[in-house]
Structure formats: structure tokens, C-alpha cells
Amino acid sequence: MNLRIPHDAWVIVCDARKAMFLRNEGSPDEPRFAVEQVKEAPANPPSAQQGTERPGRLQNAVAPTSATDATDWHELAEKEFARDTAAALKLAGQSGRPRGIVLVAPPRILAVLRQRLDAQSRSRILAEVDKDLTKYPLHEIARILSGA
């Protein structure tokens, strides 16, 4: 990647179920991340346990009745978690804590985060990385982002 992450900048590594707020305690050349906060999504049971109703029907004026799509409860939960992550980042930004922010998330989650971030948080973004690194240890995340 070859990112130069400034000292005290935050790296937000998240997916649909977990968000890690990391702070660079090292230098831009040799990042060393410390965990500031970890957020995890609540349990998301199988769809059969969440909504057992059949999909709705639409009565069209000139065509036969058609079915609507079934609600994807898991997708809704993912978007809600991304919104909560953006809200936590906004709250941290109000205290003036992160000097810069690097967002690391899969493309779908990154898109929801972009939509939900306020202008102040958006102005602090240094880079966006469309990868899922939540299962990697901190030293591996630092190595991948810095390109070392």
C-alpha cells in the first residue's frame, strides 16, 4: 500500500460485524498501532428466526399482482453497524482526538461509512482502503498498510 500514516492518526479497520479503532503510536515510516476501542455488532440470528412472514404483494393497476422482495435482515444489520461506527467516529472527532483518519473496510461497508460520516470527520480522512483486515493481528495490519 505504501501509506504514510502520521503519528497519532487513527486507522479504523472494520467489516459488517467488528470495528477496531487503532491509533498510530509509531512514526509514518514505521507505524505501530494501539487499540483505542473495539466495537462488535450484536448477534444476528438466522433469517428464519427474524422474519417468517411471506414477502408482501403489490396490486398493479394494469398488470397482475406481483411479489415484493423479502427483507434481508443481515444486510440491514450490516448497514446499522456501519452507521453506529460512523457515529462513534463523529463522537471521537468532536473531542478533537484523531488528527487524521484512515478507513479500512470492504467496499460495501466503506460506501455506507462514506454516506454516514459528517463533514468534520470526512475532512480528516487521509486514505480509504477497500480491504477486510479485521481478522489480521495489529502488526500485520501495519505491515500491509505501510507496504513494508
Rank of each mutant, 00 (worst) to 15 (best):
A142P: 11
N60H: 07
R108H: 13
A127R: 02
G100S: 09
A142D: 05
P45S: 06
P46C: 10
D132F: 08
S47A: 15
T52C: 08
L22E: 09
I109A: 00
Q49I: 11
T65R: 10
R122V: 07
L133A: 07
P107F: 03
P55A: 12
R32M: 01
V104P: 05
F21R: 06
Y136F: 15
R114Q: 11
G147W: 08
A119L: 09
E40Y: 04
A142K: 10
A70M: 08
A111S: 08
S27W: 10
A127C: 02
D132L: 04
R108M: 07
E128D: 07
K39D: 12
A86P: 04
G56L: 11
P107S: 06
A77S: 13
P45I: 12
G26A: 08
A61V: 05
A86H: 01
N2Y: 01
Q37C: 06
L58K: 06
R23D: 00
A43V: 15
F21N: 07
Q120S: 14
E80A: 15
C14N: 07
I12T: 13
D84Y: 04
N44H: 14
R114C: 07
R124A: 10
N60Q: 08
Q115E: 10
A82S: 00
L145N: 04
E53C: 10
Y136T: 13
R4Q: 14
A127N: 01
T65A: 11
T68L: 13
K131L: 14
P42M: 03
Q115V: 05
V112D: 05
F81S: 09
P137M: 13
P45F: 06
A105W: 01
W73E: 10
R99N: 13
A9D: 15
A77K: 13
A88R: 07
L117Q: 10
V13A: 06
A127F: 01
A48C: 03
N24K: 11
A86C: 07
A43W: 04
A88K: 02
F81E: 01
C14W: 02
R83T: 03
N44T: 14
S146T: 02
G56Y: 03
P106W: 09
D15Q: 02
P28K: 09
L113E: 08
Q49W: 09
E36I: 15
N24P: 04
A148D: 12
P98A: 04
N24F: 12
G100P: 06
L58G: 01
A41N: 12
P46F: 04
I125W: 06
S27E: 09
K79S: 13
G100Q: 11
G93W: 02
V129W: 01
